[in-house]
């Protein structure tokens, strides 16, 4: 592969990692929270490429936690796709039946890929939602940590 081809692959991988990281935050936010953050941006023209729809995804576990996969049970999932006027296509997938949330995630995903909006959507939407998520997780982790058992040995009798 030529150097430019390698660069292109690296760039693509970087962008994919960035999109995935954004989705991982957005899937944990409420539709209202995402919409409120998006209002800080002057959004470019965009259209629905796939209207929001709800369906099921079969959730899988592994035998023993680390073995062969098995079907555990399904979950409701919503999905949507959005195309920006500039051509970027964004996809939104989330647990639950909130189609509007899937649409907002798709819009964010399209914006993340856009040269003009990538930086601002990260700064004004993803980063604050990520911070909020981390705070919630930290709180839960600290409450959980307080229930950790500290074993100590009782010394019996006279040594």
């Amino acid at each position: 592969m030529s150097k430019s081809a390698v660069d292109q692959v690296t760039q693509q991988n970087n962008q994919q990692a960035q999109r995935k990281a954004a989705m991982a935050v957005l899937a944990h936010a409420e539709a209202g929270e995402i919409a409120a953050r998006l209002r800080n941006l002057a959004l470019p023209a965009h259209q629905d490429m796939r209207e929001p729809e709800s369906g099921l995804v079969m959730l899988r576990g592994r035998v023993g936690g680390d073995g062969a996969p098995f079907n555990l049970g399904e979950a409701t999932v919503s999905r949507a796709a959005i195309r920006l006027a500039s051509g970027e296509v964004g996809f939104g997938y989330t647990l639950g039946r909130d189609g509007e949330k899937a649409r907002l995630i798709a819009l964010c995903d399209a914006l993340v890929q856009s040269r003009d909006f990538g930086a601002s959507v990260e700064r004004d939407v993803i980063a604050p939602l990520r911070e909020q998520l981390m705070l919630r997780r930290k709180q839960a982790a600290e409450e959980t940590a307080a229930t950790k058992v500290d074993f100590y040995t009782m010394v019996r009798g006279e040594g």
Binding site: S54, L56, T144
Partner: peptide
Amino acid sequence: FRATLPRFGASEPVDTGAMRVLR
């Protein structure tokens, strides 16, 4: 109810080793 929805597919197997443990 689940019989009324289309199935999009199957998830990647979840990693319980990476669980954010609550207990």
